[in-house]
Amino acid sequence: MTWTAASAPLGRRRITVSDRRTYGAYGVLVLADTNGPDPQPGQFYMLAAVERWGGGADERPFLPRALSVLRAEPGRAHFMLEDVGPGTDRLLELAVGDDVWLLGPLGQGFQPPEEGRRAILCGGGVGTAPLAILEDALRAAGTASVALLGFRDAPHAQGAALLGDPRVATDDGSVGHHGRVTELLSAELDADPHAVVYSCGPPPMLEAVRAICEARGVPAQLALESGMACGFGACYGCVVPTRDGSYIRVCVDGPVVDADRLDTALVAGAGH
């Protein structure tokens, strides 16, 4: 079984916000993408508000923002956002009925685990987003999965409600395990290493996941982040270095890459 990346309709489309929800520190935007194709888990879209895109901090944003698809249902695409700067700030201001420019789905997403391996989903913060749609797809395929999520504190940990029944770690110990999500991951792999690890989160967490999986010989698929101008291969701005010494464009060759292609998942200039 493989999952194929959906190809994007040509050009950006004007879409209406049909719902807006809050999960503690995170906001969820639901867009009425009636004619868009079904995204592959791990794919992303470029979003920009149609009105007032610009005029925030430092008179930004100017470029559209990359957002992982959180969940897809017929005619609707969901996104999970954290307010980290002028782009996410403006998108989180949008109300039902407001319009956004949407381009996508874009990039290469996750692949299902090979026969017999269980799936471990390991996420941090807003990196929860692509794991939710992945969990949906694994469930539909009848594949067993466990989810481990790490958050800063209790308001952020409310993002855990976006997945089925995840185990949670918080930096301040206010919810779940007091410590890092990678400690939960190590314990899972100690119990049963016959797994594939799927991960998305801040670069230091992703790098820790990569190192843990490499040390144990466990395959891992990492959803990377990188500063993007276009999202469709036009600008060459989003590159990360690979193990073979070349650069790949995260937007067209990723965002999901096999961990063994990387020497490090620490990406310069990305993440918060």
Binding site: F62, A229, P241
Partner: peptide, 30 residues
């Protein structure tokens, strides 16, 4: 895109910085 005689990898990331009404790039002609 600009073609050079020999292959070029381009500059190390980060390669783009957003500014008011535009961007600054240092792609490095890969």
């Amino acid at each position: 895109k600009t073609i050079t005689l020999e292959p070029r990898a381009g500059n190390p990331p980060p390669r783009i910085y957003e500014v008011a009404g535009g961007m600054i790039n240092s792609i490095g002609l890969p």
